[in-house]
Design a protein around this nucleic acid. Structure first.
Lengths: 380, 380
DNA sequence: CCTATAAATTCACTCAGTGAATAAATTGGA
DNA sequence: TCCAATTTATTCACTGAGTGAATTTATAGG
């Protein structure tokens, strides 16, 4: 028999991840399980210290036995997240609800030989600084910018890191003496949104990661959708404009070359604009610089067009953007949103949430930690 | 508790739909259930007459007790399929394996008032002609060209039929005195491929329906993916060329206007080509007619570009085309295939099957019947 | 005719769940 | 003050779907 994917226990945990606080009867309802089973399960989880009982807020208001609210004891379990990409390696420690308890950059040059030791040193430091008890740490999640076999914890290929078949989960697990799980960075963000963030209420949503390049991932029917070969969400190389600039993949007008952070910074440089960050480019545009305006507007239009296609094909309840480039609120987002709204049929417009959000440096390792949280919680 | 979606019984049926013939021990393996449970389940199903035992083909070959092969008794259950679109209403009766036992066109003008009676008359005729025992018919599946709430069996909207909130399942159920289920036509084709056809071996695939317009649907993680709002697969109105011809949806260069059967026939007429069918257009192209060549090549390129995007976003194991327009093997398919192969990254090229197939008149009602088959079988 | 072998079944058992009855904890009114 | 009403939570006997280990069945081969 397949793992019973929806046991009463996991259903209860899922409901509490989604809702913060629920009484036992509400839990019974949401988890689709009899009150008797809820009693059984919650007793067990209370003993383990995973649940917190908060006596009655409705005391003195209604008749009857007062409800006892249950919530997850966030500090019960902590998780390590390690994000690895060509720019840097970061580490974070979070609690069960995704609160970041500690965070630091591990290293800039992710040399594979030295990586496990560097991560171990960083883990020890961060543990000390944050005051988290080592015994509370349940595992480590690793996000890698590349193609990852999540089942095996092996990075199959990463162009940026020049990795091929690297058993990264195994290496980190050995270094930290903790269970480890690895996944691709976009999948990690999707998982992070689902259990820590803005995706908690949705069964079907897509995330779009705006960084040096553009990635996406999908939650479908309440689970992460990896595709046939683990490559779902490869939005960066969809062709948006067949006559567009050449991409390193050999084709033209890929989304990455039109709206990716790296391409955009290159284009700005080529246009003679001197910028340190995307914020600078947005500022220039705001002050009326025609070149900056054109760059951002075109990039937003390209992204929006790709997202419109995604919406038509997959009909997500929401598209959650994670802005790692620091566009913040500005022309780029406006242009993107406009292109989406112009590009989708009215019925999608009404039913699809388009949600932008500022990424922070800690976004990636925090998402990585969610992989560990997920795997720990479903195995409880 | 949610319906146990993967009980031993449904797992056994699913395995036998996929594999034709399996021994009990093979079944135990594929269904992921102990041999003991297989004995239990198969006893029950044999009694019901759903299973057929075929004694040993390996007699006299190996030592040991000979294996007994089990297969589904195709004639145990029959299903009615009704396909409804703006062109016509068709009806088919199939067996458990999708074999078409009878088929006819119900009517050309799908007047809603008269439809249930017309379907009933057609059902009775087809039943008589095919010699199927009424008692074997387990239900009716209905596919509608429009937006369908499959849960409720209500067509929410169909532009072509001018329907709004039509409880079509209920009406047909009453007319035929059979359980009825309805779904959108592309979803029906996906279901048909999954349980009767080319999709049986895949857990993740997309179908693309080439008709007057273009539709698609996705099977993901082993189940039909409907999207947040039941609108997933709306490929016809993704923008392929922002500078393309106007679409009735108000935008430009939608896939439907570039590669849909209706648009293509209009374009051929406008170009002064006199064709009765797509086969004629393909013939003209084969004989070197430049206009026909351009039409088919451009249309194929547009379709291929859209499919390339689908492959990048969703990474299906296969894309199954259903050609209801009668392009058959020709320039259109070649152009489509080329555009897909040029438009996807090499790793997708290697792992994604692109499979064309000729649609037949009976394709639609046969697919519709699969909806009934699915719903009947999972409820057993 | 006995032994080896492979397939299938039997059977005692477990485990996660349920429904109905009961207990617990409170408010409000006689 | 105390009991009825009300709402929440727990108890408990029971069930259904599964399992693993032992056993039975049916064959080939020496």
């Amino acid at each position: 028999m397949k793992v019973s994917f929806r046991s009463a226990k996991t259903a209860v945990i899922a409901a509490l991840l989604e809702n913060d606080q629920l009484s036992r009867l509400e839990l019974s309802d949401r988890a689709g399980v009899s009150p008797a089973a809820i009693t059984e399960v919650t007793q067990h989880l209370l003993q383990q210290g995973l649940l917190l009982e908060t006596p009655a807020m409705n005391a003195g208001k209604r008749r009857g036995r007062p409800t006892v609210q249950l919530s997850l004891q966030a500090s019960h379990s902590c998780f390590v997240g390690v994000s690895i990409n060509e720019e840097k390696v970061q580490l974070a420690i979070t609690d069960l609800r995704g609160e970041v308890l500690g965070h630091e950059e591990v290293t800039e040059h992710s040399d594979l030989q030295e990586l496990p030791a560097a991560v171990r040193a960083s883990f020890t430091r961060t543990l000390r600084k944050s005051g988290v008890a080592r015994a509370r740490v349940r595992g480590v999640g690793i996000s890698v910018a590349g193609i990852v076999d999540a089942e095996e914890g092996i990075c199959r290929y990463s162009a940026g890191l020049d990795w091929r078949d690297v058993p990264i989960a195994e290496k980190i697990a050995a270094a930290l003496k903790l269970p480890a799980w690895a996944d691709n960075d976009a999948n990690a963000i999707a998982m992070g949104e689902k259990i820590f963030g803005r995706g908690r209420e949705y069964d079907n949503f897509s995330i779009v990661m705006l960084g040096r390049t553009i990635g996406s991932a999908h939650y479908m029917n309440g689970m992460l959708y990896r595709g046939h070969d683990g490559s779902a969400g490869e939005i960066g190389h969809i062709t948006v404009d067949p006559n567009g600039p050449p991409c390193r993949c050999g084709r033209n007008g890929c989304l990455d070359t039109l709206a990716g952070g790296y391409a955009l910074r290159q284009a700005a440089k080529k246009a003679g604009l001197s910028i340190q960050s995307m914020r600078d480019l947005e500022d220039l545009a705001m002050r009326g610089n025609a070149k900056a305006i054109k760059l951002l507007r075109d990039a937003g239009a390209a992204l929006g067009s790709a997202i419109a296609t995604l919406v038509h094909l997959n009909d997500p309840a929401a598209v959650l953007f994670t802005d790692l480039e620091g566009f913040e609120n500005g022309l780029f987002r406006t242009a993107t949103r406009q292109a989406i709204e112009n590009g989708i049929l009215p019925r999608f417009l009404a039913s699809t949430q388009i949600i932008f959000g500022d990424g922070e440096p800690v976004s990636l390792p925090r998402s990585a930690a969610s992989i560990a949280a997920f795997n720990y919680l479903i195995a409880l």
